[in-house]
Amino acid sequence: MKKILALALAAALALSLAACGGATSAPASTPASQPASAPASTPASEPAKADLTFGYIAYDMSDIWNEYSARAFEYAAEQNGVKTVVLDSKNSLEESITAMESLIQQGVDGISIFPISTEQGAQLVKMANEAGIPVTVENFAMDGLEDPGDYIASVACEYDKIGEAAIKWIAEQKEGAKIFFCAGQEGAGVYEKYQEGVDRALAELGDKVEIVSTLHADWLTDKAYNVTTDLISSGTEFDYIFANNDMMAQGCYQALKDAGKEAPIVSTGGSPDGYQMLQDGIEAANMTAPVSIQGVKTFLNLYGKVAEGKDPAEKFTALPVIPVAAGDTSSYIAWDDYAAAYEYLSKG
């Protein structure tokens, strides 16, 4: 019956899932080389207070953002002596229901879900509630739903804060900067959140910076190349580019290069490819939001409740926005540097 309900809901659920700096319309990137600096020290393992097993329901492990978050969850579990069962929904509503049913049957002590949407997430939460299993959520803020079910906490990226940080960073570098905003795809809600942050920063900064053009490249490298080329041909003057993700930043850079022009490019997310572009001088800065922190924080929310009986201090935690400039990448936390993410949260 639950599978039938899930399929009936499929048409009504919009897939708003997108990694910081990316979206479902953009293909996953191949991880590039990581920082050459020594990795953060691994925290000493401490025995769990009980022999615990946690389940993890992934949205789609072929998605680079979800994969790194799941691995971070597993890493944090290892540090605390907790066993994990990771199940992949493969972007299927029916498979997510099957995964939840499987974890319930296995009698796991807690479950973390990376939903396809908030509505589908609430459905999984309520299934865990019925089974009496504590559940936590990542990648979505669930408080916008009328009835999200009883979940421990959620942790997710807030795109508006990233957009705001990008514009403020540019203003700090060049007062009066004329910015071309190479934006993501309209309609799915991700670009719109970025725009909220951009507008908030502009209102606060006044005439210190100006957006001279906003063109949508839909998260794609080739379309970013085309819209940037068209803007250059139009004669519109700009001296900074805010690219909504690293793939679009690559397209903007190539268009500038082919036109014999230069303009610093600021991107978002802090993916492995983004880090490499900082190293190669393609990006001037990246407003990073390390997904490794999301995975570790999700585990800590679940572990604190199950093993220690503690609720998180906050029902919702936003991923930190960490600006990283090409000239100093010391604050960069790689998506696969789970030890650094664990240490970052331990310090907090």
Rank of each mutant, 00 (worst) to 15 (best):
L5I: 12
G55W: 07
C182D: 15
I57G: 06
S330Y: 03
G304W: 06
V266L: 08
G274P: 02
S102L: 11
F114Q: 15
D160I: 14
A44M: 14
G295L: 04
N286V: 14
G281V: 05
G132H: 09
T136S: 15
P320N: 07
E237C: 03
A243C: 08
I116S: 07
M287L: 05
L345Y: 04
Y225K: 11
I97Y: 12
G269D: 02
A340P: 07
G260I: 09
A50Y: 13
A318R: 08
S96I: 13
T221S: 08
T118R: 09
V212N: 06
A325F: 07
A285L: 03
G81N: 02
D150L: 04
A171H: 00
Y75I: 12
S154M: 08
P264H: 13
S45F: 06
I179H: 03
A122K: 01
Y75E: 00
V86T: 11
Y159H: 15
T42L: 13
F238M: 10
V85N: 14
D207E: 02
E175F: 00
K49C: 10
E74V: 12
K161E: 12
D199S: 08
Y275H: 01
E262F: 09
Y240K: 08
I211V: 00
S33C: 10
A72N: 03
G274D: 06
P323V: 01
V85G: 14
E186C: 12
Q279W: 03
Y225G: 13
S271R: 00
A224M: 05
K161T: 02
E283R: 07
A6G: 14
M277R: 14
P264V: 04
F140I: 09
L278V: 11
S45Y: 10
A70C: 01
A307G: 10
I116C: 05
I4R: 14
N245P: 02
L202E: 03
E186V: 12
M61R: 15
A326Y: 05
Y75W: 09
G110F: 00
T24W: 13
V296F: 01
Y56H: 09
A76N: 05
S233H: 11
Y225I: 09
Q106K: 11
A340K: 03
K208A: 02
A19F: 13
A249R: 00
Q195H: 10
A23W: 08
P43Y: 12
W169P: 07
Y75R: 04
P264F: 01
E314G: 14
K168F: 00
A177R: 02
E158F: 11
D60R: 14
A263G: 02
L13C: 12
Y59L: 06
F54K: 04
A38W: 10
G197H: 00
Q120I: 15
Y303R: 03
G274N: 00
E119V: 15
N66F: 11
E172W: 06
